[in-house]
Amino acid sequence: MGISAQKTINHVFGYIGMAILVIIIGVPLLWLVSGSMKTNPEFYTATPSLIPERIHLDNFYKAWNQASFGSYYINSIVTTLIGASAEIIMAVTTAYALVFVRFPFRNFVFVMLLVALMVPEQVVILPNFLTIADMGLLVTSSRDLSTQDYIRGWLAIILPGASIAFGTFLLRQYFRTVPADLVDAAKVDGASHWTTMMKVIAPVATPAIATTGLLSFTAKWNEYLWPLIVTFSDRLRTLPIAMRRLLDAEGNAEWGVVMAAAIFVVLPVILVFLYAQRYVVDGLASGAVKG
């Protein structure tokens, strides 16, 4: 058999393999989209179809208005943006300090960070719950909340996850590859550490910072266990928790609304991912291969 025949066979198998992958990954996603547009009779049938009978947006309307997903969006957006911003800023400053600022206990600090990387959220979730309660941040009232209640509730969701080990680690690895000449030149020019970080390091490290930021964003947006535990008031629910409660309340009666709610949960992440997936995929991959 000639080389080109072998190649053709490989290609044929390759495309068959890719088709199988597309079906395995795509059909459940399609099932979600089609489910969100189905009416109840279309759900409870022995012959469900992958394509809904018609474009039917009632479920989205119901999820948005009756299940007040509009207001849950605010909780998710506020906690995600503040939480992720805090993480990015602290990851950059901490990584910068670890690489470029002289300090006697620098290695100790780095080890502290590595150990924190190995402590899973679940292990510390109970004491953290007690800490947040001691700080007076648990909002238990389900009546109309004051602005102060919202701030307390948001803080309860944001605070325990605001520190960042993985991103700091990722950025530290990246900053170490920045040529020392660049930093020295800035120093000779009399630039402060702040200026050096903002004007010299950050621009060079933009891809790595973007990766860290996107990972933080998706992690915060998707967070489930912690918000589940600390949101007693239904007004403070983030989207994943609101979807869960909707499932408990309507799961058997209104599948379509629950599916629409699930779409509300995943849509922002999908949009961001479509726009910036290069950073996520390449960033993660290079972190794994080089790190």
Binding site: L29, T218, N222, Y224, P240, M243, R244, V266, V269, I270
Partner: peptide, 9 residues
């Protein structure tokens, strides 16, 4: 893509 979607969803 499923890796970035919320596990709950």
């Amino acid at each position: 893509s499923p890796a970035v979607l919320a596990g709950s969803a």
